[in-house]
């Protein structure tokens, strides 16, 4: 490598910063969707880098399904406060008041009402014309084809057959009123890149990613953590302490843990290189049907 070459991570970083700045320059009212997960944490750091020494010129929005792990919410609030972020938390009030939840309504209904619908409400409420998401193309097949600037019609729908050509690093940011763009600045990162970057940059992440003794109930082969008393009593009674960690974070009843001793990033990566289960399979929603993510994306979910 000569003195004018970048490593993979630095090249990805430069690309992401370029994308984030482009959105700030081209859109009137962008927002960064913040899931509190590790990919979001990386994306948020990249935004801080993009506008340093200034403040990031757009807010973070967390779509709270009201079933997130408590540690996630705590982490979110601390992070936003310490780093002076403008944080919007939106939840589907109607859904919440009518008591929608995964234990009572099942994962499909819950996800639709408390995640997809809540997201669309949040986007409509603030009239955002661009929304950053932390999705990566290597996560899942339908994402492999998605553009970095992904056009959504006024109903927030994605049409995989009708995507705008996207060349070089020239992004088409033109939208009519009501239409919007979802922007994926870390499209080209792999899971390993994300961990490497977290390690390199010392990016804080939710402690749930690290292995620890936690109260766990086995449900249909998934290891579900008891996070609050909304888990039915008969399930809670079966909980046993197990050393586990989470590969992805979502709603606690829908996110399976894995048995693990990895309590450092190094150990996580080591485990990842040899592990037999790829990342998204610990998210229960993907099991719904073949190509279910593509279906959800068409409907407006990321």
């Amino acid at each position: 490598m000569n003195e004018y070459s970048l490593t993979n991570l630095r090249e990805l970083e430069a690309e992401a910063i370029h994308i984030i700045r482009e959105v700030a320059a081209e859109f009137e009212n962008p927002v960064m969707l913040y899931s509190i997960g590790k990919d979001s944490s990386v994306m948020v750091r990249l935004a801080e880098k993009a506008f340093y020494p200034g403040k990031v010129p757009f807010p973070l929005m967390h779509i709270d399904s009201k079933w997130k792990f408590k540690e996630m919410i705590e982490f979110r609030d601390n992070y936003a406060k310490e780093n002076n972020w403008d944080l919007i938390v939106h939840y589907n009030q109607e859904g919440f008041e009518s008591g929608v939840g995964p234990f009572t309504h099942g994962s499909k209904v819950h996800t639709d009402i408390m995640k997809t619908q809540a997201l669309l409400q949040g986007l409509n409420k603030y009239k955002f014309d661009a929304a950053f998401g932390g999705a990566r193309r290597d996560e899942e097949k339908s994402r492999a084809k998605e553009r970095i600037f992904s056009f959504r019609d006024r109903y927030h729908q994605w049409d995989p057959k009708n995507q705008r050509p996207e060349l070089w690093n020239i992004y088409n940011a033109k939208v009519h009123k009501g239409e919007s763009i979802r922007v994926f600045p870390i499209s080209n990162w792999t899971e390993l890149d994300i961990w490497q970057y977290i390690r390199l940059e010392n990016i804080p992440i939710v402690p749930l990613y690290y292995a620890k003794e936690r109260p766990i109930v086995e449900m249909d082969g998934s290891l579900i953590m008891v996070d609050d008393e909304r888990m039915p009593q008969e399930l809670r009674d079966k909980a046993k302490m197990r050393k586990v960690r989470f590969r992805t974070l979502g709603c606690y009843p829908l996110t399976g843990a894995i048995d693990s001793d990895a309590d450092t990033i190094e150990k996580i990566v080591e485990e990842m290189m040899t592990v037999t289960v790829s990342e998204r399979t610990t998210r229960v929603i993907d099991f719904d049907q073949e190509a279910s993510m593509e279906q959800k994306k068409r409907e407006g979910y990321f």
């Binding site: 993979n8 090249e11 990805l12 390199l200 990566v269 080591e270």
Partner: peptide
């Protein structure tokens, strides 16, 4: 540790 340090130097 070594693996990660080396991996970090990869180019694209």
């Amino acid at each position: 540790q070594e693996f990660l340090d080396q991996d970090q130097k990869k180019d694209l």
